[in-house]
């Protein structure tokens, strides 16, 4: 029997959208552009091919090329890699293609088939950028969920405490509530944030242990 290598989490969001036709793919593409554009630009800047163009142009070109390929994301699911690693690998191949194309156009020197090389540790740099992007998107989504649930004040308290690092006592004073009330309201908003963040990590992860994924990303600090 063929081994089932697709973690359930991958099926639940990206996998489900891939079988959902054009609209589903468009949604996946929007997600990829939202979360991975900046990390991939940082990754690109760490490669020996950074002379090939402006990061914006190169990474946008990469997305346009690869996401137009029907099997690009299906192949990712079959790969067992995290999505960010899959995209990094894909970008490296794309850079080699770009290099050959520039050579053919007479705009670059001939190069042998050397693999892309790196200065520094672009994977770690990309992981840090990925953390920044998933936190940014999760904050935005959690805020929307709080507003939709009538929890705007809870969200404000969350931001004051977790983003600005203000103590509950100060927040309570300013917002005319007991510090303990501010703390409880923060926990309410934190649940929305946690859910949003874990959903985003699950879309990227190669396995279902989201806590381990988060801890792994924090180790990159």
């Amino acid at each position: 029997m063929k081994q089932d290598v697709f973690p359930q989490t991958l099926r639940t969001w990206i996998g489900a959208r891939l079988v959902d036709g054009k609209q589903g793919r468009a949604e996946v593409n929007r997600h990829l552009m939202s979360v991975y554009l900046r990390p991939l630009k940082i990754y690109f800047l760490g490669t020996s091919e950074r002379y090939l163009g402006e990061p914006d142009d190169v990474v946008s070109g990469f997305f346009a090329d690869r996401l137009a390929r029907e099997n690009f994301l299906d192949d990712w699911i079959a790969s067992g890699l995290s999505l960010r690693r899959w995209l990094c690998n894909g970008l490296c191949f794309y850079l080699k293609e770009l290099r050959r194309q520039k050579y053919r156009d007479g705009r670059a020197a001939e190069l042998n088939d050397d693999p892309v090389t790196f200065s520094g540790d672009p994977e770690s740099a990309m992981d840090r950028a990925f953390v920044a992007e998933v936190v940014r998107v999760a904050l935005s989504e959690a805020r929307e969920r709080c507003l939709a649930d009538g929890l705007e004040e809870h969200w404000n308290v969350f931001e004051q405490h977790h983003c600005l690092g203000r103590p509950y006592a100060d927040i309570g004073l300013e917002m005319n509530m007991k510090p303990s009330r501010a703390a409880v309201m923060t926990r309410t908003a934190t649940k929305r944030f946690r859910d949003a963040l874990r959903e985003l990590i699950a879309r990227d992860a190669a396995h279902e242990d989201i806590d381990a994924e988060i801890l792994g990303l924090l180790e990159e600090d």
């Binding site: 953390v131 936190v135 999760a138 977790h162 963040l197 989201i210 806590d211 988060i214 990303l217 924090l218």
Partner: peptide, 9 residues
């Protein structure tokens, strides 16, 4: 990092 840590269940 602090915000990321909030994601741990």
């Amino acid at each position: 990092s602090r915000l990321m840590r909030l994601g741990i269940n």
